[in-house]
Design a protein around this nucleic acid. Structure first.
Length: 579
DNA sequence: CTAGGGTTAG
């Protein structure tokens, strides 16, 4: 219907040509008429017709018409960059407007190199870029992670005196931030007189995209204290995501409050990130409740709750929600299947796991990734079907990675199959993976079967290789601030108080029957030094700090980067019993 | 004489 009306107007245009008015009076209205027709197009076919008429009327040489033809064709969702470029080829002296829109079109279509090439063609042909050129061009650099090109472009911005343009500045903040050059990103930001929500947003979102969650929150705090507060949905969602990764439940709740107070309603994205935050911060019930009350759930909402339930060992409920999702007519994707398969793994549902695996491939047409194979190896390994797990690894269509061998290794440790464990370890080392924690597992595997010589051999190997353990850190939220503690660290806040508290805790726990388990300290040091090292593990520092600053009985939630060591685990258990 | 920045979830 839309199509016919535009074509009808095209005919009007021709009939006007049959009864021309005097040229100087006529020229502009005709141009404008053409442009308004161009803008009304809803399909490429209509556009081609209008383009044809413009060619017939010889109006392509009007910069106004050509510009709008190219821009519309480049940017509309029905448009075509190839077609836009073919029009562009016909224009003798393309304006900066035309170049800008072609650059934007290439960026929109993810032809990022073409966007940069278009810019260099622009420069070669002596067309001066303007403040409209750079936002799109810098976006291309962001997507290409092209920091060098981005910096060159920043130099052009200076050369042309465009460094004070608000849009260019925000694009630069974003470009530097997402390319990992945080200091440059900050430098541009600091240069702005009147910081807007968009500049803060660019700064904060860049930290989030790099996984710098602590920095994300502290910048959000700065934004608030500098009075640039506006409940901005996207920023609050980024904050929620930071809370999720940091286990900052209280700040997450607060953000939930801000959203409720400032937004007229919560959309799917906001609700889903709230659910994910509650679930991953250990408050499954709250997240589950929110999920059940959601009016419209999408694939991602299901995804977070399924993996959340699986994570909390509520496998059967996870599988139930999955079947609800299918019933609702939503299509599962590869990530959801990772959740489903891991739910099966936690519940020891081997047969069901394989059924879901087949269903994923044959019913939903999802090719299993290495992650899915990882779930299956884990599933078999936990169930003690180690040979089958090994078979699966050998028969996978892709090369196994360290994660798979590690999964098999730890299953072998649990089920005391040293022989296969050694095979797994050998393959792991062949991948040049030399993690201290893997050596710990192997050493413990030998220790379990009293093969002390092998235990000693592994320790020597580890010391020879000078393997540093991944530095362990723990995060804890106290009064809506997140604090980070690193093992053996003395540079954290209120160090003296924390060590004093540690000392007291240890004394009290020993009274309760705790004795340090030094078996996992694979360092060539004496027993006393081992105990010292254990007592300074980051989670103990974090607990001590939290105990100092919270009232009795309030929960302490700790987020860690690596698995808790045995000793800390015992320490926790004694602690929990005490509370 | 047209247009542009940040935009969020697994």
């Amino acid at each position: 219907m839309v199509g016919t009306s535009v074509l009808h107007q095209t005919h009007l245009l021709i009939s006007q040509e049959d009864h021309p008015r005097s040229p100087e009076f006529n020229f502009r209205p005709k141009e404008q008429e053409c442009v308004s027709l161009v803008k009304k197009c809803k399909r490429i076919e209509e556009f081609k017709q209008v383009h044809g008429q413009i060619l017939k009327l010889g109006l392509l040489w009007s910069s106004f018409c050509a510009s709008n033809l190219v821009a519309t064709c480049a940017l509309s969702d029905w448009g075509s960059m190839d077609y836009a470029c073919s029009i562009f080829q016909q224009v003798e002296e393309p304006s900066s407007f035309i170049f800008n829109n072609l650059i934007r079109g290439h960026v929109k279509d993810m032809n990022l190199e073409d966007a940069l090439l278009m810019y260099s063609e622009m420069l070669e042909r002596g067309v001066e870029p303007d403040n409209f050129t750079y936002p799109a061009l810098l976006k291309a650099c962001v997507r290409l992670r092209a920091l060098d090109e981005g910096m060159q472009i920043h130099a052009h911005v200076f050369k042309l005196g465009l460094e004070d343009d608000e849009f260019v500045q925000n694009s630069l903040i974003n470009m530097y931030g997402k390319c990992g050059a945080m200091r440059h990103s900050c430098a541009v930001f600091e240069h702005i007189d009147q910081k807007t929500v968009a500049s803060w947003s660019a700064l904060i979102a860049a930290r989030a995209s790099m996984g710098m969650w602590c920095e994300c929150l502290s910048l959000f705090g700065d934004m608030n204290s500098e009075g640039c507060w506006r409940a901005e949905e996207s920023i609050l969602v980024t904050v929620l995501s930071a809370c999720t990764h940091l286990g900052a439940l209280d700040l997450g709740r607060c953000t939930h409050g801000s959203l409720l107070r400032n937004m007229s309603g919560l959309n799917v994205i906001v609700e889903t990130s709230l659910i994910d935050m509650y679930v991953k911060c250990g408050y499954l019930e709250r997240g589950y409740c929110l999920f059940q009350r959601m009016c419209k759930k999408n694939q991602l909402s299901y995804s977070v709750i399924i993996s959340g339930l699986a994570m909390h060992r509520r496998s059967l409920e996870a599988l139930k929600v999955f079947s609800d999702m299918l019933e609702e007519g939503l299509k599962p994707d590869d990530v959801i299947y990772v959740g489903v398969l891991s739910a099966c793994g936690h519940a020891g549902l081997v047969e069901e796991g394989f059924q879901y695996f087949d269903r994923m491939r044959f019913e939903h047409g999802i090719e299993p990734t290495i992650q899915h194979y990882g779930c299956m190896v884990d599933l078999l390994g936990r169930a003690g079907m180690l040979d089958k797990a090994f078979e699966l690894i050998k028969n996978m269509p892709m090369e196994p990675n360290d994660v798979l061998w590690r999964s098999l290794l730890s299953a072998c440790k649990v089920h005391r199959n040293v022989e296969l464990g050694e095979t797994a370890a050998k393959n792991l080392f062949q991948l040049n993976s030399h993690n201290a924690s893997d050596y710990v597992v192997i050493s413990n595997m030998y220790a379990q079967v009293q093969r002390w010589q092998d235990v000693a051999m592994i320790r020597t190997k580890m010391i020879d290789k000078k393997l540093a353990q991944t530095p362990g850190f723990s995060l804890v939220e106290v009064k809506r601030n997140v604090y980070k503690f690193v093992s053996q660290d003395k540079s954290h806040p209120q160090c003296d108080g924390v060590y004093e508290m540690l000392h007291q805790m240890e004394w009290q726990l020993e009274f309760e029957g705790y004795s340090p388990d030094t078996s996992q300290v694979l360092l060539d040091v004496d027993e006393e030094e081992k105990r010292q090292r254990l007592s300074r593990h980051s989670q103990k520092l974090a607990i001590a700090f939290a105990l100092i600053h919270t009232s009795q009985g309030s929960p302490i939630r700790i987020v860690r980067n690596i698995r808790m060591c045995n000793d800390c685990h015992i320490y926790y258990e004694v602690n929990f019993d005490d509370l």
